[in-house]
């Protein structure tokens, strides 16, 4: 990072990035973790995020976009504060993942790739998340929830809504 250029990231994340670029034998190896951590903080990979990461790694923005657009967890548009990812791959499907997905649709009144108007939730149908023996499985941001039945859905949604309220009050 050039001195004098302000970071768009929080001081904590900026400091983490300073460490990350030195962690690998080649600076560029920090690219994918940086994109992921930046997305965690900023919600998505905005032009500004891409520009700063490119600058930090001495890459062109094109190179950063080329890489970022390859990975399915990285997005270029905002998602909800809680991104609900329902695995519908074979193992989860056999155990009723589509019913779970449908239940989330009904509960949140959004389709996959949609975001609730309050920006709290987004819904995504995702590929295998590595919880095949415990399906249907979902991830809310990075949290796994195993063996979900459609009836669990309102509770999960309510739980995160409560969490958001609690955090909002702080």
């Amino acid at each position: 990072m050039k001195p004098g250029v302000a970071s768009i990231f929080s001081p904590t994340l900026a400091a983490r990035f300073d460490v990350l670029v030195e962690k690998y034998p080649v600076k560029r190896s920090a690219l994918i973790p940086m994109l992921l951590y930046a997305q965690d903080e900023a919600g998505y990979l905005s032009e500004a995020v891409i520009a700063e990461i490119a600058r930090r790694l001495s890459l062109t923005e094109l190179e950063v976009r080329n890489v970022a657009s390859y990975y399915s967890m990285l997005r270029f548009k905002p998602a909800g504060r809680y991104n609900i990812q329902v695995c519908t791959n074979i193992c989860c499907m056999l155990k009723g993942a589509y019913d779970v997905l449908d239940r989330f649709r009904e509960e949140l009144h959004i389709d996959p790739n949609g975001t609730t108007p309050d920006g709290l939730f987004s819904l995504e149908e995702v590929e295998c998340i590595g919880a095949c023996c415990w399906g249907p499985a979902i991830q809310v941001n990075y949290d796994f929830h195993d063996e979900i039945k459609p009836d669990h859905v309102p509770g999960i949604v309510g739980g995160y809504r409560g969490k958001a309220q609690a955090e909002g009050k702080k």
Binding site: T60, E61, L62, E63, R65, N66, S69, Y70
Partner: peptide, 20 residues
Amino acid sequence: VWALGIENRNASSVIAPNLG
């Protein structure tokens, strides 16, 4: 010049220019 890259993957892959 390195002005062209590849964006997305699978059948959605496209050639992309450097300014979007």
